[in-house]
């Protein structure tokens, strides 16, 4: 039995770390990302939805270690850690038993995560396999728009925007097909 919604529930937001970039083409831009093996930074996330009376705000810490470790540690409004290590997904919420699942068992999540990893690894080919990648004009820095190629992913994610300056990624924004969006602003960590 296929329960698409379950996959949607588990789709986690994965921000890119700060990465240096220049005005070259997309492949060159991504190639420079590959040099960064590890990243730790603070984030603030702003969520909107048709169900909500006002915008939700989250904050916490982001960690990436090449090649396959991603962690989103939410500090506010509650304490929660979402870890993806290889194919394993670990969810830890304060006061609840830790849950693990296979990334493969949630295809929508996997394709998003794989694309994020492709970006972090600077693998333009892998990224283009799952998304149409466009470079948009931006006054100070750069701006990529990713549009999912997979219809199943497109049912939940309309597009992803990543932007940054020559220091690295500053913001990413996931626009949901169901309405509402999630905007993550990244500040370099210590």
């Amino acid at each position: 039995m296929k329960i698409r919604s379950l996959g949607c529930l588990l789709l986690l937001a994965w921000p890119w770390p700060l990465l240096a970039a220049d005005d070259g083409d997309i492949t060159a831009l991504l190639a420079r990302f590959a040099q960064h093996r590890e990243f730790v930074g603070e984030f603030k996330e702003y969520k909107t939805s048709g169900l909500l009376a006002h915008t939700l705000e989250l904050e916490g810490q982001l960690i990436y270690r090449a090649p396959a470790y991603l962690e989103k540690h939410i500090h506010k409004p509650y304490d929660e850690r979402q870890i993806i290590d290889g194919d394993q997904v670990i969810l830890e919420h304060a006061g609840e038993p830790r849950r693990t699942l296979s990334l493969t068992s949630v295809p929508e999540m996997k394709i998003v995560v794989d694309s994020l990893r492709a970006t972090l690894a600077g693998d333009a080919a892998a990224l283009r396999a799952n998304y149409r990648v466009q470079k948009l004009a931006q006054a100070d820095g750069w701006h990529l728009r990713l549009t999912p190629r997979d219809a199943a992913v497109e049912e939940s994610v309309r597009e992803i925007h990543i932007s940054g300056n020559d220091i690295g990624i500053r913001e990413f924004r996931i626009v949901q097909t169901a309405g509402g969006e999630s905007r993550v602003v990244i500040a370099p960590g210590s």
Binding site: S5, C8, L11, L12, S49, L51, V157, I174, G180, S182
Partner: peptide, 18 residues
Amino acid sequence: QLRILTSSMVALPLNDVQ
């Protein structure tokens, strides 16, 4: 529902949740 909305990147279709 709020927690799902907060933690996950992509929420359920709006109509279904409503």
